[in-house]
Structures are given as C-alpha cells and as structure tokens.
Simulated assay, not measured.
Amino acid sequence: MSDAITRVVTSGRFTLDGGTWDVDNNVWLVGDGAEVLVIDAAHSAPVILEAVAERRVTAIVCTHAHNDHINAAAELSRATGAPIWLHPADTPLWEMEYGGRRPDAALSDGDVLTAGGVELRVIHTPGHAPGAVSLYAPDLGAVFTGDTLFNGGPGATGRSFSDFPTIVASIRDRLLTLPPETVVHTGHGDDTTIGAEAPHLDDWIRRGH
C-alpha cells in the first residue's frame, strides 16, 4: 500500500430496516505527513484521530450514508473542523443517523478533492445506496469504493434504497473501465483490483447478487 494511504479498522454496528449487524469497517486516510482526507468516518472518532495524529484533516468524505460509514463523522468534524462531504441523493439515509444536522458540502460526479498533493476524483456509483460514490486517485493507482465493489463482487442490494441492476451498471460502466491494475480499497474486508473483479461480472449478473 502506498505511503499516501492508511487503513484504520473500526468496529461497531450497522442498522437498517429493523436489523442490526456487528461489522468491521475500513476507514481510509489519504494524503501526506501534513494533511489527510478521511474516507468513511466509522464507529470511533478517537481511533481515527489517533491515526491522523498531528496532521490537518481537509475533509471527511462519505462514500454513502449507511450509519456504519458515517456514525463518527460529526464527532470527527467537531474535533478537527473538517467539513463533511456527502452526495445529496443519500440524504434520507443520513437523516436516519443525524436528523436535521446536515452535511457541510455536496459531492457531485466529477468533483476533484485534494489532500497532501493527492487528487481524488468523485465517481457517482449508485446501487448499494442512491448517493454512493467511489473516489479514484489515478496517481496512486487506487480507487476507494465504499460498499459498491468488494473483493468478490458487488455490495449488498437487498435493503431499502438499494438496487441490483443499478449497482451492476455502476460497476460495469464506471469502475471496470478503470485500468485493470487499479487497487480497489473497500469499505469492509480485503483489497482487490479492477482486473481481478472484471472477469466475474457475468457471473454476478446470473446470480443476481
């Protein structure tokens, strides 16, 4: 993994549609020795702050608004002064966690965010959630996919606000077009690459999940 990327694993609970599951989340810090951008502030702001150390946090970016990806965002924002970014299509999910407290900035497809000289391009990849985004860092040969694409296939689409044909289209048209050597940093579990996942698209479609 590049020195510009740090993974922090936090643990907590994911709650939706009346169910609750224990989960481990990947929190990604991207930048350099002076400043970082935090992707998916999950479960524990103190654990994330320990990894940030003395660096400035330029932004807290949510790949989507399921509670397990945003439930430490407000506390982290208060501690660092960094703005929280979210695609507005995920507002209904955000409100389940935070009510009337709004994110600070809206993500849009094609936006470019920077931290420590690293540029991350926002790619809207709906399906797991309507406002799901991936963040592509071409200079690092990496893409941060949240719960859109995992090592082994697409994210889950069996719950509210999700849709299987939509996530397949996002992966096929927006992610599998990236260079095959691109490393996929996921919201849970192990990394993969675009090239490792691309051959299995038809199998995912046949299985319907």
Rank of each mutant, 00 (worst) to 15 (best):
W28S: 03
R101L: 14
L16Y: 11
V133W: 05
G189I: 06
V47T: 15
G100V: 10
T114L: 00
I205M: 04
H209Q: 08
D17L: 02
F164C: 13
A198H: 14
G195A: 10
G155H: 02
V38N: 02
M1S: 12
G195M: 06
A106N: 15
D40T: 06
S44R: 15
A65K: 05
D68I: 02
I84L: 10
R7Q: 09
V27R: 00
L93K: 12
D139F: 14
A4I: 00
D32Y: 10
D17E: 00
I194Q: 00
V112Q: 01
D147N: 13
V184E: 01
G131F: 12
I5Y: 05
I39K: 01
G131D: 02
A73L: 05
V112D: 00
D202T: 01
D147V: 09
R13P: 00
E54F: 11
W28Q: 04
L120C: 08
E75F: 12
T58L: 09
R207L: 10
F144H: 04
L178S: 06
H43A: 05
I171K: 04
V9A: 09
T6Q: 13
A196N: 12
V38Y: 02
L175W: 03
E95D: 05
D190K: 15
N71F: 07
V61G: 02
D139T: 15
V30W: 01
L175I: 08
T186C: 11
Y98W: 14
L201M: 06
A106F: 14
T193L: 02
N71G: 03
A59G: 11
G33F: 00
D109L: 11
L178K: 08
G100H: 14
R56A: 13
F14D: 02
L93Q: 13
N71Q: 08
A59M: 05
A45Q: 02
G155V: 10
H188G: 00
L149E: 03
I171Q: 02
V183G: 03
V57S: 04
A82E: 09
D22F: 11
N151L: 12
L175P: 04
G31S: 07
A105C: 13
V52A: 10
Y98R: 08
A156E: 05
W85C: 08
R159Y: 15
I205G: 01
A115W: 08
T20D: 05
I171C: 03
G127R: 02
N26E: 00
A74F: 15
G187T: 04
Y136R: 10
A53F: 14
A105D: 07
D68F: 15
V143G: 01
Y136W: 15
I5K: 01
W28M: 06
